[in-house]
Design a protein around this nucleic acid. Sequence first.
DNA 1: GTCTATAGCTTGATAGAC
DNA 2: GTCTATCAAGCTATAGAC
Lengths: 243, 243
Amino acid sequence: MIKDNIKPNEVTLKGTPPAPSRSSRGKPGRPKGGRPEETRDRILDAAESLFADRGYDGTSIRDVATAADVQINAVGYHFGPKEALFDTVVARRATIMTTLRLNALDEARAQAGAKPIPIETLIRDYVRPFIDSADHGEPGWRNYAALMGRLANSPLGTEIIARHYDDTARAYLTEFRRALPEVAQEELVDGFSAVVASMLSICANTGRRERLADAKHPRPAQASIELLVRFHTAGFRELSSND
Amino acid sequence: MIKDNIKPNEVTLKGTPPAPSRSSRGKPGRPKGGRPEETRDRILDAAESLFADRGYDGTSIRDVATAADVQINAVGYHFGPKEALFDTVVARRATIMTTLRLNALDEARAQAGAKPIPIETLIRDYVRPFIDSADHGEPGWRNYAALMGRLANSPLGTEIIARHYDDTARAYLTEFRRALPEVAQEELVDGFSAVVASMLSICANTGRRERLADAKHPRPAQASIELLVRFHTAGFRELSSND
DNA sequence: GTCTATAGCTTGATAGAC
DNA sequence: GTCTATCAAGCTATAGAC
C-alpha cells in the first residue's frame, strides 16, 4: 500500500529549484513577475492562506495553483510533494519568529543582569512578536498565525510545531524556572501552555470573542497583548504563592 | 455548481431511520449487535474518533465505515451526507455537556443566594464537566474533547461551536459580569476565552505539555483542573484591580 | 521553467437486488 | 437495513513536448 515516493528534486527546507536562470527569457504569454523567486513566494503565500482557511486536507494542490495563478504542476515542481510544501510554508516564518523571540530573550537577559527576568517580561517577549506580526505585518503573517492556531491542537500539527518551536519554548521555560524556582516544572509548563493557547486563540481570529462581547470590531492587538500579559502574569504569581 | 442534496431520510439531530424493526430478524451472516441502535452508535463512535484524529477532510466515509465495521453505504443511509454525520457527532455530546454545565450553574446560583457566584466557582463549574469527561468517562469523551480542541481555532469549526456552545458561554459570562461588574465586557470575554483555550489545549492531549516538562506520564486530570482554576482565577482578580 | 496530458487512485453519493 | 456495484468527480504526482 505504502508506495515510497522517490523525488528527483530537492524537498528540503530551502531546496532551490535546479537553475534560477537569471535573465527573464521566458516568452511573455501572460504578465509574469520579473524575478524568478516571485513565483515561489506567490505559491507559498497562496498555500499559507488556504491551509489556514481550510486545513491541510481541505486544500488541494489545484486550489493552491489556481490561487497563485500558476500551472497545476508548478507547485510540485518547486516544492515536491504536498507535505513538503506544507512544511516549507510553516518553516518560512518559523525561522523569523524564532529569531525575534530569541533576540528579545537575549536583550531581556542583558537587561536583568544577574537577577532573573521578570515573568511579565518573559510573557510579553514571547507573545508580542507573534501577535504584532499577525496584526500589523503583511497579510501573510495573519494567515500564518491562524494556521499555527489550527495546528496547535491537532496530533499531526503538534509534530510540526515541536520541530520548529520546542527549542524556543524550552529556552523561555528555563528562564521561567529561574524566575519561579519554587514552582514545580509541570506547573510552569501548564502556565506556559496557557499563555500559548491564549495567544493562538486570539490570533486564530474566529470572531468568537467579538461575538460574545457584542463588539462590532476586533480589539486592537496592543490591548490584547497587554491584557494577556497582565492576566497570565497574575496566574504565574498565584502559582508561586503556595497556600 | 452547488447541487442541493435532497435527502429521503432525516438528517437532523435525532433523526431516527425509517423503521426500528424491533425483532432482530436479519440473517446472522456476521455477528451483529442485537439492538438496532447499536449500529448507529458504532458509526458515531468511529466517526468521532477519526474526526478527532485526522480532521473532517482527512477522514473519509469509507474510513468511518471500516472502523465501525459496517458497509460503506450504511453511514450515508443512517446519517445522510458527510456534513450531517459530522454535525450529529458534535451534537450528540454537546447536549449532554450543556446540561451538565447549566445544572452546575443553577446549583451555584442557589448556593450563592443573592451574592454573585465566586469566579473560582464559575471557572471550575465550566471546566470540570469537560475535563472530567475526557479523563474518566468512556473513551468516546476523550475523542470528543480532542475534536473540540481541533475545531476551536478553525473558521468552519467555530460556526459549529457557536451553534452548540454560545448559549452556555453567554450564561456563564452573565455571571462573570455580576461577579466583576467593574471589568469591561471585552476583558471578561478575553479572560473567559483564555479559560476555554486552556481547557481545550489540555484535552487535545497532544503530548506537548509532557514533552516540555520531561514528564513520563500525563498529569491526572484533577490536578490539571485545580491548577487551571487557580491560575485563571488569579487572572480575573488582576483584571478587577485597576492599577 | 512553462505548458499539456494523463496515469492511477480515492472520494462522496446513490441505485437496485435481496 | 444489509449487501454489491458503480458513477462522476476530484485528487496527487509524473512524463514529455517545447
